[in-house]
Design a protein around this nucleic acid. Sequence first.
DNA 1: CACATAATTGTGATCGATAACATGAATCCT
DNA 2: AGGATTCATGTTATCGATCACAATTATGTG
Lengths: 348, 348
Amino acid sequence: MTQSPAEARPPARAATIYEVARLAGVSHQTVSRYMADRTKLRASTSEKVEQAMAELNYSPNLTARSLRTKAAYRLLALVPGSSPYFPSRMLNGAAATAREAGYHLDVVALEGAGPERTERLRRILDGGPFAGALSFVPISGTDLLQAQERIPVVVAGEYDDKMRGQGRISDGSAAQAIVEHLAGLGHRRIAHIAGPQEWPAARNRLAVYRKAVHDAGLEDGGVAEAEWSAASGYAAAKALLAHPSFTAIFAANDHLAIGAIRALHDQGLQVPADISVVGWDDHPESAFLVPSLTTVHMDLEAQGSRTMEQLLAALNPGSTPPPEPGPAGMRLVLRESSGPAPNQGQAD
Amino acid sequence: MTQSPAEARPPARAATIYEVARLAGVSHQTVSRYMADRTKLRASTSEKVEQAMAELNYSPNLTARSLRTKAAYRLLALVPGSSPYFPSRMLNGAAATAREAGYHLDVVALEGAGPERTERLRRILDGGPFAGALSFVPISGTDLLQAQERIPVVVAGEYDDKMRGQGRISDGSAAQAIVEHLAGLGHRRIAHIAGPQEWPAARNRLAVYRKAVHDAGLEDGGVAEAEWSAASGYAAAKALLAHPSFTAIFAANDHLAIGAIRALHDQGLQVPADISVVGWDDHPESAFLVPSLTTVHMDLEAQGSRTMEQLLAALNPGSTPPPEPGPAGMRLVLRESSGPAPNQGQAD
DNA sequence: CACATAATTGTGATCGATAACATGAATCCT
DNA sequence: AGGATTCATGTTATCGATCACAATTATGTG
């Protein structure tokens, strides 16, 4: 700031390929080719271009490139609106992967329901040229088909449904581990607080719960559907407690489990002495709750990243095949909120 | 799908102003003018253009417009990388406001520290033409100045510092309410678990805590700096308990409070019978914990939205002045985790 | 009614990159 | 060695919008 404005050359506008070309003594097209595939140039030419670029601190104008190639460099990430649930960790993973692949990620909330939601989705897609979309919210069949007419769309978690269709269990497999864990502790009747059934993950956990309960020869202690929030878990647990024949609750996520534990506490019931509670997701806080939460650890960043890779694969059909979208890094974490069933002492 | 493909005209590529112009029987520039300011056209012309646009379902190519005008329609949102803290609610508020103003919001993680971080920030800004940036992570002075040479940058929470500089308290004012609340319950020595001091909000809460303790004639029960996570709150509380002269802990956010409560529990201390704990942010789960958390409720969506309005105001200096960035909607929420100081019975 | 002035519309250039085609130099083959 | 191929590079057109300026039409005035 003490220098004269003339000396301190303003960064001004960025250099163009024409300026780079002139400095390097080549044509602008050669500069363009350098960016596309520098090995197609003679080594000496390539070096001249490289030097000129460095000297001018050149970086390509993506707007111009995009106009000419019609390729879009933006991906759309759809997130829930004012919902208590926000896929921040998955989003982080997805954003990092998108960035590495040279894409920008626009985050847009998709709210509403029914035709209003359909219209909103259409407006969002009109809003700008997107190369593809990754949704962290469920999208109904017709809306999805309509969107996919324009660009590739991947819905996070949808693979759950597909894989179950293939007879494989994917995401829900840990639900089986939970039921077996509780059965091993002597529990005979387990209740389930399910997530909103438009979410594949919620459907899947419920389905696997039912199957696992049946396979283990246990009885269904009741199912209550809820939103993803603690408040909703509280209400669902209260409802289940109207017929308290169960000794354990399997909640579809940690928030629901927190609400359920509070409901039990308000009812004068101890966790896990009277009733065991198991959650899902292993939020960073869950290990520090009193009681700490038995839950299923998820590598949500990896899951977001993997989902993004699926989308990227759909964008470049030629390149690498889409990665196996399985639930890697998922594992049951045993903590204080689950213990032996009350009526029969120590069962483990 | 039952119609012939010829009948079902494919959406194909979007119409251009030239096609609209031909259909309307005017020049392409007239179409362009229609979009800029339709009142400058004769009513009859305007109507013809409007009809043609409707018929072709025209929507302008923002890429081409941006190339010509050099105006950018994208805003940058910087979020923490793999941090346990993610400003999802503020982000939602900011994204909605940006969208209403016709901007797209790119979410990018800013990680690392020191020169590496500086370089990363530069690369991000190179990555595309951004009209402005909104950071949810602290940006150090030089990095911020460097970035602001290119585009307007607003850092969420920075106004805390500014307002304190003006002798006003802003965000931290509730910290004073917390201290007074605890003093009213008979607490004489309060400890503070502070957030990372590069965050203005953390600095501010600490400063107001110190001032309020002094003003109320209380003693400082110790300060431990921590990250924003429960694990860090746990460690900080353990450190504070090495010299347990306090009867209350004021944690800079709810996650820290959860960790602190767990640490107290592990030490055999009851909350609030032995020690009161107060958090900050009022996460949706905090009301359902056992004990439920006394905390400061924040309207984070509104805060994000307001911060975005500041940025938008900086982009259009002519238009409305930047909104007062005060901490509206903040209020102390009394719950179970705070109670009378132990040594003197009921003090309230 | 003629002419100056304002209001409206049209023409061609341009933003910065890539596509398409053309050209010159180097390599290969019989 | 001469012609066919390949390789490396250059020239011009183009993406879809706005800008700058020219041209036309409408309006006002004495």
